[in-house]
Every structure is written in C-alpha cells, then in structure tokens.
Design a protein around this nucleic acid. Sequence first.
DNA 1: CCTACCATACTTGTATGGTAGTGTGGTAGC
DNA 2: GCTACCACACTACCATACAAGTATGGTAGG
Lengths: 232, 232
Amino acid sequence: MYTNGRAQEPSARETVYAKLKEQILNLELAPGTALSEKESSLVLGVSRTPVRESFVRLAQEGLVQVLPQRGTFVSLIDPALVEEARFMREHLERAVVRLASAHFPAEQLHALEDNLALQLKSIERADDRRLFELDEAYHRILFEGCGKLNTWRAIGQMNVHLNRSRMLRLVADRHWEHLHEQHEAIYQAVKAGDADRAERVMQEHLQLGVRDLAQLMDKYPQYFISGGDGKP
Amino acid sequence: MYTNGRAQEPSARETVYAKLKEQILNLELAPGTALSEKESSLVLGVSRTPVRESFVRLAQEGLVQVLPQRGTFVSLIDPALVEEARFMREHLERAVVRLASAHFPAEQLHALEDNLALQLKSIERADDRRLFELDEAYHRILFEGCGKLNTWRAIGQMNVHLNRSRMLRLVADRHWEHLHEQHEAIYQAVKAGDADRAERVMQEHLQLGVRDLAQLMDKYPQYFISGGDGKP
DNA sequence: CCTACCATACTTGTATGGTAGTGTGGTAGC
DNA sequence: GCTACCACACTACCATACAAGTATGGTAGG
C-alpha cells in the first residue's frame, strides 16, 4: 500500500546535518572553529551517532575536516575552490541560458517573474539574507526549466564554498546594485530567445562575485587557507 | 613534531567505503541489489558502524538508496543523471581544453604522452578495465594541468553514474576503436595550441559514450529507473 | 631557569545492545 | 478455497560502552 505520504518526521541525523550546514554557511560557525562530536551531541540533544554521521557527510562536502583522534574543524575557505566554483558556474550557466533561450517552459518563466518581483521587495527592505536565497532560487529555476536540475545540484556541492565567501562579503559590505538588473536582463534575453545576449550577461553576472576575493582574504586572513596546509 | 607522514593505515570505514563503491561501479553489485548493514558487516569482517557510515556516504553520492526500516539498495541507473553527467563534462571539458591549448605545463604534457602509450598497450592486450582507468586518468590530467583538479573531482560525483552505464555497455559490447585516436588528436591540438580543434574533438569525443543508452535500457530494463519511482 | 617525562583529559574510531517500523508467511475463522 | 489477522524475522535508527591516539599542563630532575 501507499504508505509513502512522505509525511515522515525527519530523522535526527537529517536535522543535525541541516542545522550544522546552515550554521557553517551562515558563518555562525566560522572557518577554523573546532567542533566535537560530544559537544554537538549535547547541544543538539542527541547521541553522538547522528552527529558523527552528519560529520561524515559534511566532510565529504568539504565543509568540515576530520583529523582522527585530534578533532573536527570547520574547513577554512579555499580560494581555489571558490574560483573553480565560479568557473563551473560560468561555463554551465552559459550553456543553460543558451538552452533556455531556445526553449523555456511557461511555468518556469512565470516563476522567474515572481522571483524577480520578490527580489525587488527584498531590496526595498534591505533584507540581504532573503535576497541571497532568491538569488539561489533564480538560478535554480533556470536549470529546472532546461531539465538540468541534477546539474544544479552537482554545482551545489562546489557552490557552498563560493557562497561562504559571498556571505563573508555580505558581512563586510553590501552592494547588490547590479544584481537585480542583471537578473532582469537575463530574463528578458531568455524570453526574447536571444541566446547570445543571455550568455553574455550571464558571463558578466557570474564574474561579479569573486572580483574582490583578495580583499576579503586580506581582511579575514584567519578564515582562509594560507600555505600548503588545510587540504591534503 | 611531524607525525604526519601520511603512512597511516586506512580506517575500516575507508576500506569498506572503497570496497563497496568499487563493487557498485563494476556492477558486481548490480543496480537494485539489496544490501544490509548486518550482512555487509559480516562479509567484510567489521562491525555495523563503519558499514553504516559508508552507506551514508554512498547515499549522498546517489549510489545507494536508504529506505528507513526497510532496507538499503544499490541505486538504479537514472538516465537523466547519465545525460546530465555528459552535459557537464561536455561543457567543462571544452572549456578546459581551450585553457590547455593556451598554456599547459610540460609535466602534465609528458603525463599525457605516457598515458597514451599505456592506452595502446592496453588495447593490444584487450584489457578493457585498464583502458577504462587510463581513460579516466587522461581526462584528469587535462584538468590537473589547468589547475582545475577540484572541478574534475566535482564532475566525479556525477561521473559515477555515467561510468556505470559505460561499464554496462562494456559488458554488452566492446568497441574502443575511436577512443585512442581521439585522445591522440586532443593531445596534438593542445600541444599545437589549436584551441578550436581541441574543443571540437573533445565535443565529439564526449558524445560517443551515451549514444546507445536507449539500447542498454532496452537490454537491461531492470537496471534502470522506469517511472516516477526510484528518486524522490 | 630549562628540559624531559608522565598522568590526565580530551579527541575520534569501533563494537554492540535496544527500539521502532516494515514485509511476509502461516494460521484461524468464515 | 478465500480472507483477515497476527507472530516473527528483518530492517535501519539511535544510544552507549569501550578502545586507541593526541595535546597539554604539571612536575621531577638537571
């Protein structure tokens, strides 16, 4: 029988994993912070087992680093990962907007419109976090409309590193001026079927994020990998 | 002191994970096969804990599917994942060979030469598995020479699904004719700095693999996702 | 004062027992 | 013969105990 109503309460492992990941991405758990299975289990009110399994998942994503018998630490931001995340997004999203310009379902086109409207409201309210989420959702919709949602998910695993540096930049200084207008321009180009223009704007759009990575590394050196250490 | 000679014996979790992953990729554990923490722990001679943690990792990669209180199963092959893996590789590797054509270190260039020589020997011996590994290594070297090794690793997580279908194809029918000559052509183009030609050959190269995916799905329907089931 | 050593309090790694949910085969009742 | 029910075997999930390695601070000896 269909017991799969998907109304199951999430497992302890899932909640712990989501909580830790959110805190790491929000920089509430700063890069370099020492974690511990026992401490996290006490804080979150579960045993070590689900915490440990969450650490395994986070370690696989490169968000934490487990040193056997020594400790678990929130990974330092690796500039190479940040740049390569940008690289991946640039080339894959350029390809995707070309696809989108050729054919894009009405449903996702409307979703883009709604998203753009919400972006404007978030900018009015100066709600950075919300705008950040909407930005993510916007790009996700583009992939979804092209039937490339799995590709977006694969990007996601690199994207977390890019997002952490973007979040750091958000703390230092907020300038979302061009963001909405670029999103708008991409939307217009896709709608008009102008693949060349869509690709060009997307390329510019994805070069904004890491322009001043060096400044961030200078301002928050303790959050970044310096020498040969950090990732073996 | 420097006790980090990296000469540590691998943990039980690592060996279990590697073993299971290899067996899944080799199709020794066929898609749909039922696994179990207890059984695997008995077979591999460890307790349930490292097995369980390996399942967590494999589940995150999409290689197994864990149904709570019901069982753990080797994931069926998802044609959408296979196609999107090809999509990612096509666009990222085209970008990479363009970079490589502009500048490529001598060390990696020699590594490509060695690799090509070994490919020839594997073809002579009709050693498919070995040629498969060399093919993977060849592309990895291209990324490495461009300083995009993390990108290759990110592709890897999608690539496993592509490779599983390629392995299935290997079982059915072996035709590696064009593989080596395409690799050779890419090498020549990179060495000559001809970005356009390198990109073009790479594009053709990466369209070979999934040409007859439909045939495989027809021949081994039990290994593939059919309807809306499989991945929620 | 400086150094070498060692007890101790951490850390993660592994093993195991108990719990709750799920599928299945047998059986009682119709 | 057919159906409904129930006991049982099986699963993954979680908690806990033990093992083994590591960093550290205090102390004895020079």
